[in-house]
Design a binder for these strands. Structure first.
Lengths: 114, 114
DNA sequence: ACAAGGTACCTTGCAGTGCAAAGTATGACG
DNA sequence: CGTCATACTTTGCACTGCAAGGTACCTTGT
């Protein structure tokens, strides 16, 4: 179906924003992010590992997040990611852009003009 | 800046929806679409030829639109595109998907205002 | 102790898309 | 005739999501 493709394309670029938004609430590790994203979106967003990990590395490379190994429980090591100040700025800018974009989409594609 | 990149990524996939929406209102040719899109979005959307024409060909190949040469004025030949029934269905489905997507985005990344 | 399964992290190769840039053709204007 | 704007097309690159494959560790059952 072409619809799944549309959804895939919609997700492009927004993956970073979604990850940043979740990490802004609380530091998390990889798999936890996958679960929380699905939870927070009422099951709408389901990203795979092949999407998540490259995204985390990309965000790290760009200095928007920071990952550090931590012992979250005795004998349990997880790579916890946190948002950097630069990441917060970027997120704020993206939120603004998203708003403008959604508005413009509404203008052009939104109402079935009668 | 990374913001322009975000915008580019946001546009991905939505190009088709925007084109379909405009053609639903009225049959148009290539450059006209570029101008009308910018107009309808209050100057927000500005797509280039390298984006538009491949998109038109893609939509044609998928049977969502149909392009025919027509003489819009004496000695002026333009390739006019119209939306097919299949295109209308697709557009309706995409509008619905877009709504769900925007809602989910609001759930995860939305509550900035507090 | 050993096998089996789940969790967690990482990487590779492919497919789809926007865009800059270059190419071709035609009409308008001085 | 030369120059410019309009209109259509194509190529090559950059970026991203994802399926699939790989490694390591811990837990559970026998």
């Amino acid at each position: 179906m072409t619809l799944t493709r549309y959804l895939t394309q919609l997700l492009k670029g927004n993956t970073d924003v979604l990850i940043l938004s979740l990490l802004e609430r609380e530091a998390m590790y990889g798999h936890q992010l996958m679960d929380e994203l699905e939870l927070a979106s009422s099951g709408f967003f389901k990203i795979s590992e092949g999407t998540l990990y490259p995204a985390l590395h990309r965000l790290t490379r760009n200095g928007l997040i920071c990952g550090k190994w931590a012992e979250i429980a005795p004998g349990k090591e997880r790579k916890l990611y946190t948002v950097t100040p630069k990441g917060e700025q970027e997120l704020a800018a993206c939120r603004s852009t998203w708003g403008d974009f959604a508005t413009a989409m509404g203008l052009v594609a939104g109402p079935a003009t009668t």
